[in-house]
Design a protein around this nucleic acid. Sequence first.
DNA 1: AAATTACACAACCGCATCCAT
DNA 2: GATGGATGCGGTTGTGTAATT
Length: 310
Amino acid sequence: MGRQPCCDKLGVKKGPWTAEEDKKLINFILTNGHCCWRAVPKLAGLRRCGKSCRLRWTNYLRPDLKRGLLTEAEEQLVIDLHARLGNRWSKIASRLPGRTDNEIKNHWNTHIKKKLLKMGIDPVTHEPLNKDDQASNMTETPQDHANNTTSTTTKNLTTQTENHNHLSQESSGSTTANSELAENSSSSSPAAENSSSGDESALLLADTLCNDESFMNNLWDDNSKLSPPELVDDSLWKYSCPPSSTTYGDQKVVNYSDMGILPSLEDNCSSSWLLDCQDFGIQDFGFDNCFDDFELNKALSAIEMGQNLH
DNA sequence: AAATTACACAACCGCATCCAT
DNA sequence: GATGGATGCGGTTGTGTAATT
């Protein structure tokens, strides 16, 4: 007896999600959480595979997502983390608040890869392309590489990453995920310790990073309702968090009206998923811990602004 | 203005892993 | 320990849009 397909292929819709479907999914998850993705489509009244629902939620509908291109600082962090972790996009994404593995993967493939090649750096090994021993690296997996080598990009980025690790530990008080990174760093990247503090490029990058206000806000703002990098995971989203103030502080606000989730002006309807939250009672979802009146108002104004754009 | 190319990103697919039985 | 189901992850493809010719 073979394994059952993850969903009944018959009658399951594929392709782009409609605004109506998005709304159904959001309402359902905000109301019930996602106890079991397989059951979600049925319970939410969607003709979708559970897998598809999960993907849609984690990659697009989650309220804490940042939209828009990665900042320079985020990009540098991705490069550094990739040098250490390889193509483990979910691990990398867990260190970038509001970013998804899919988003980072896409950005890597469309931007960073080319950028590194242009700089003469192998995006897989993070070593200079014309190195003699390049051939030997060809057989190495990114993971092997991450465990064994000191990459060029890592060398360049060490200072900034150390700043991140050090400071995020302090600010979050949580060391679980960072300790994993630290493990990788200490065992695999002696460069982290050895890199010259006088390395101009590293300092420059660190400077860039620290001057990137939105990025730093995400990392430092104790009041930020964004999870610290190591805390961004689905388990926490079971009892989801609303759009954070940090997110709304960015011009790339999560704009639900763009997605058609919010009623258009012509709908002349006051309901939205956020307003629905109010109806449900924010406390019902544990929102009271992370969503005060001020932020609710901020969120609603942001949404109104979004509506006014249409 | 039309055709072509490049880019951005949403979504799917298949395999891996975890976990309950 | 074996098995099967649910979920997660990474690779890849498809599609819409902007830029260029």
